[in-house]
Write a protein that binds this DNA or RNA. Structure first.
Length: 517
RNA sequence: GCCCCCAUAGUCUAGUGGACCAGGACGUCACCCUUUCAAGGUGAAGAUCGCGGGUUCGAAUCCCGCUGGGGGUACCA
């Protein structure tokens, strides 16, 4: 190949277009987010690597008026953006094949439904929901597979005209071939064969004039020049019908790839009772989008079975649809948390982490909104705190409870008994606190090494183990028995407050002794 | 019931006929570090590769059957 030919090819690189079509019926589910992620990785990662220009489009599938939730679509775009995905066209980004909201394209679907009626590939069905219900019940009673009995498929033209003239409502059904088989070629599973007798005459257009998924999806994917359809495994049963609809229109079928399902820990669908399922919930609990992306990418896909950490860029660089597994995966909250903790403790920079922690602290009134400014002293103060306890933050939402004694002037109420170390008494605790106060007021808290040396000397002189002396100090300044290293803790709390809290603790010990005698 | 998909440790997975008496990770357990709790380090236990038949000199890997799990079976997507 000559160089001119090569550059020519780049200019005319084939276009790969994929789409993510959420239904605005609520919050975005993690399963949906995973599907969106794989589409995104394919469009902006694999496709360009293989010499194609890749594009992702977002389409809102709001053809079910009864389940429509106002604001849901906006929420989905927002959470997708938070997740780290980008797209070329969508409801917020008009393009050449819009609109990208199906309820705004009903004329297109109706026209196509009628085109199918004209060619005999679809027919009007005047059956009432009541009759359908009755047919279904009879089939169940006779232990036959449920499904439409195709009564209206054999209506003659006179009957149809008569029904139409009396204003009878109708749906448009697809006239499925009665014999033969339909092969669905799936990129992940290979060819799947379906006997046409088992396929139903699905409704294409509803009485309200809106299309069903089966029509709208096919029409839109065709008109929006979609080349690859990546969707959930739950769509496999209707895939052969969709293939037939493409054939009926005389269109090419896009490449199909059905993503493995995400299962709940006990088996079955992942639902509320197992824990969070919506991306919004993960966000508000303080999961990082990059940790979520890393974890979700590994649910159903793997690179080499060894590598665990992938940044967004590495994912784009390594993802291939061919390495997506066909078998369903169980969602493991535990492992997700581990990823989150790893990102918090080892991957994010301190400034970055602090910026993400601040909103959670603001929400709990631990700091003012001023701390959001990276140049502010409040930010610096929070960052010092984050630095010494980031290793124990699993979720950002854990931060306020972990950090309160650093950020609040007043210590929360605690049991003075905690001040007394094991195998020791109140008198010992009291002298330990006083000795500590003495040392700290002369040495300060900034020089941790010097302070530690002095305190250890004091402990030795009094015949205490270092740990025995440190515990009362820890409790006095934090109000709890668990904290980061004592000297880090003292330094970050600051000398003035430390002395104040030591004094307060000594007094509560005195009160304690007084109440005993 | 019918149609379809899937099947390696509790979980996510590597593995595409021989170097696999099966590798990595989460979780679990132990030890180390240590002023508490974490974090971190080291190590261990845990899989007759769902079961049964084949094919082959040789199978986790190919074929068939079974079982189990899951999905679909709407004028929802």
């Amino acid at each position: 190949m000559t160089s001119t030919e090569k550059s020519n090819e780049v200019e005319h690189s084939p276009l790969v277009r994929v789409r993510f079509p959420p239904s605005p019926t609520g919050l975005l589910h993690v399963g949906g987010a995973r599907t969106a992620l794989f589409n995104w990785l394919f469009a902006y990662g694999q496709a360009p690597r293989q010499g194609s220009k890749g594009q992702l489009i977002i389409r809102i599938e709001d053809t079910d008026r009864s389940r429509f939730v106002p604001g849901a679509a906006e929420g989905m775009l927002d959470i997708l953006e938070w997740f780290g995905l980008t797209w070329d066209e969508g409801p917020d980004k008009e393009g050449p094949v819009g609109p990208y909201i199906q309820s705004e394209r009903t004329a297109l679907y109706q026209e196509h439904a009628h085109r199918l009626i004209d060619t005999g590939m679809a027919y009007r069905c005047f059956c009432t929901p009541e009759r359908l219900q009755q047919v279904r019940e009879e089939q169940q009673a006779r232990k036959q597979p449920p499904g439409y009995d195709r009564l209206c498929r054999s209506l003659d033209q006179n009957q149809i005209s008569e029904n139409l003239s009396t204003g009878m409502r109708f749906v448009v059904r697809f006239a499925m071939p009665r014999d033969g088989e339909t092969i669905v070629d799936d990129l992940i599973r290979g060819p799947m064969t379906f006997q046409n007798v088992n396929l139903e005459d699905l409704v294409l257009l509803k009485t309200d004039g809106y299309p069903t998924y089966h029509l709208a999806n096919v029409v839109d994917d065709h008109h929006m020049n979609i080349t690859h359809i990546m969707r959930g495994d739950e769509w496999i049963p209707t895939a052969p019908v969709h293939v037939q609809v493409y054939h009926a229109f005389g269109w090419n079928v896009p490449v199909l790839a059905h993503m493995p399902l995400i299962l709940a820990p006990g088996g079955g669908k992942l639902s509320k009772r197992h824990g969070s399922t919506a991306m919004e919930e993960f966000r508000s609990q303080g999961y990082l989008p990059e940790a979520l992306m890393n974890y979700l990418a590994l649910l159903g896909w793997s690179f080499d079975g060894q590598t665990e950490f992938f940044s967004r860029e590495e994912l784009l660089d390594k993802f291939t649809l061919e390495r997506v597994s066909p078998s369903p995966a169980t969602f493991d909250y535990n492992k997700l948390k581990w990823f989150n903790q790893q990102y918090i403790n080892h991957i994010l920079t301190l400034d970055d982490l602090t910026e993400r922690v601040v909103p959670f602290l603001v929400a709990d009134d631990l700091v003012s909104i001023a701390a959001a400014d990276i140049e502010s002293p409040d930010f610096t103060r929070v960052r010092d705190v984050v630095a010494i306890l980031k290793d124990r933050i699993e979720l950002l939402a854990d931060a306020p409870a972990l950090m309160s004694y650093f950020l609040l002037d007043e210590l929360e109420q605690y049991d003075p008994q905690l001040l007394i170390p094991k195998k020791c008494d109140a008198a010992m605790a009291s002298s330990a606190l006083q000795a500590a106060a003495g040392v700290i007021s002369t040495i300060g808290v900034e020089n941790e090494a010097a302070l530690e040396t002095s305190l250890r000397e004091v402990a030795e002189k009094n015949g205490w183990k270092a740990g025995q002396m440190f515990m009362p100090i820890r409790v006095a300044v934090t109000g709890r028995t668990e904290s980061p290293g004592l000297f880090d803790t003292l330094r970050v709390i600051g000398q003035e407050r430390v002395l104040q809290r030591l004094d307060q603790a000594a007094r509560s010990l005195a009160d304690l002794s007084a109440s005993i005698f």
